[in-house]
Amino acid sequence: MNSIASILALSVDAQTVPAVLFYLFAGISAASALGVVLSRNIVRTAVCLLFTLVGVAGLYFLLESEFLAAVQLVVYVGGTLILIVFGVMLTSKSPFSRFEPKAGEVVVAIAACIILFAALVMAIRSADFRPQTLDTTQKYPVVALGQALLGDYLVPFELASVVLLVVMIGAAYLAKSRKRDDKRAVARGAATLSQKARQWS
């Protein structure tokens, strides 16, 4: 952290660097999230989402959660987002086809979201979390995380692995294109195979 701070701004104090970095990542995230909402092109939306996710990964770094940041980058950016882009590619007749919401819907949605956001902010401000000053000496070693996952959280961990397996099978089944004459094709194939076997023998 200090090294990054020294590279970016040598003169600033220890508290300023994280603040600058926070605003940087937060700005990237927030702007990209807004871009996700506002962009009408699905491909551009995907790109904006990419930047949001990267910004969030940066915030994880600021929060001393390096492993999580790495997972965010690898899984989200490298996995999920690629998946989404593939989805876009597979389902879109033209990558620039767009569907516009109605104006009334837009107004209602924005009004509701403004109210919600205002309410959230007010709630956050009025809540007393008694935040401590950051203890920079506090580290979150990956070893401890691994111990926690295979210790206290073993059952959820294993359940998650089962969920992943189920999802893998389910997704593969769902995405499979169904053909009515599958069985007939199999039968035909078997017939040819047995014919060949007879020829050979």
């Binding site: 927030a30 924005i110 979201c113 919600l116």
Partner: peptide, 11 residues
């Protein structure tokens, strides 16, 4: 970010 997600779900 949450509100942005909501908006994009709605719109």
């Amino acid at each position: 970010i949450f509100v942005c997600g909501l908006l994009s779900m709605m719109l």
